[in-house]
């Protein structure tokens, strides 16, 4: 590993900004940090705690026009251009991007997602502190795990230990003034893990448990858990009329929404809050692993922190492990 001093950070970020657009954590309001386009390297906050929205929207935007169509001009497809450096991605969020690849890159691949992924270099950032909601170690990663990133930074006194993991990452680091590192990799903060493999084994036996109904009592049916989740990817597609045609728009949606499965006839196979809450849980811990061989969760804890009524997925995992129908 090499060492990048705090003093040389600015110069490196400036060179990245010269090569493409730099997206990094920026403080927008007191207590609110979001991955944003960097205008000045001084805005970048690499000591951030968490962003409410993971960087998934860089590849799967909250809304995007799939195409515009008019009978006279045919299809117009928005072009995806330029190169992006996504900096400051914690290991959980880097895993989130990897998980998002499964649905969007499995055939037939979504060309928009594919193109954005191809044009983006992910520069990961180790976590020197864990938050109380963290449980990333349940998913084979950890606070200083560089997997799923093209290059990785570990904060150390006076700067960062840096490492390129892919050719893209090496290219991004080429312009950084690095020294041979003499500092050892710090010890990662403690993050408690949940045995999710064990959960998966027994989960289906609790599918019809009254647990879901009790948990759903306080659920609001909002979409916060899904929109802050690095691996939730439900979407909606609808048209907006234009003067002589249409614009077809894809937007984030969530299986937690009461209208999500309602058919035009009014029939809705998933009418209750309990069945919707259950679907999100089983998708992450049963259906997604069945389909793609990985859990649909990164342990980032955002849903724990941002749920307005504290539906804590870790409590659900523990309740299932205990085989209890009791509401935790």
């Amino acid at each position: 590993m090499k060492f990048l001093s705090n003093g040389n950070l600015r110069g490196w970020l400036e060179s990245l900004m010269g090569m493409g657009s730099l997206i990094a954590p920026v403080d927008l309001e007191p207590g609110l940090t979001l991955f944003s386009q960097v205008r000045d390297p001084g805005e970048v906050n690499l000591e951030y705690e968490i962003t409410p929205i993971p960087p998934k929207d860089l590849f799967f935007p909250s809304s995007e026009a799939l195409f515009r169509f008019s009978p006279s001009r045919g299809y117009e497809i928005p072009r995806i251009e330029g190169e992006t450096f996504l900096l400051g991605v914690h290991p959980c969020d880097a895993l989130g991007i990897r998980l998002m690849d499964f649905p969007f890159l499995s055939p037939p691949a979504d060309p928009r997602y594919e193109e954005r992924r191809r044009r983006t270099t992910i520069i990961g950032l180790g976590c020197v502190k864990a938050r109380p909601e963290c449980f990333c170690t349940s998913f084979g990663i950890g606070p200083l795990d560089p997997s799923n990133a093209d290059a990785f930074l570990v904060p150390v006194p006076g700067g960062f230990l840096v490492e390129a993991k892919t050719g893209k990452g090496a290219r991004a680091l080429a312009s950084a003034k690095l020294k041979e590192a003499s500092i050892p990799i710090p010890k990662p903060p403690e993050v408690s893990a949940i045995d999710v493999e064990a959960v998966r084994k027994v989960a289906l036996s609790l599918f019809d448990s009254p647990y879901w109904g009790r948990l759903a009592d306080r659920c609001l049916s909002c979409k916060v858990c899904a929109y802050v989740c690095p691996s939730c990817y439900c979407f909606d597609i609808r048209d907006y009329p234009t003067r002589d045609g249409a614009e077809r728009v894809r937007s984030w949606d969530s299986c937690q929404s009461p209208l999500f499965t309602r058919q035009a006839s009014g029939y809705d196979p998933r009418q209750t809050k309990a069945s919707r809450l259950r679907n999100r849980f089983y998708h992450k811990f049963s259906y997604f692993p069945d389909e793609f061989g990985a859990f649909g969760c990164t342990g980032c804890g955002r849903c724990v922190r941002y749920c307005p009524v504290n539906i804590d997925i870790r409590e659900t995992l523990s309740a299932i492990l205990r085989g209890e129908a009791r509401i935790a």
């Binding site: 649905p103 439900c234 979407f235 299986c255 998708h283 259906y287």
Partner: peptide
């Protein structure tokens, strides 16, 4: 079976019945 659908390709997660 009928279901609400958006993509038709197993991506939008609207029509799953269990797994």
């Amino acid at each position: 079976l009928e279901a609400k659908m958006k993509c038709g390709m197993g991506k939008c997660m609207r029509c799953n019945v269990g797994n």
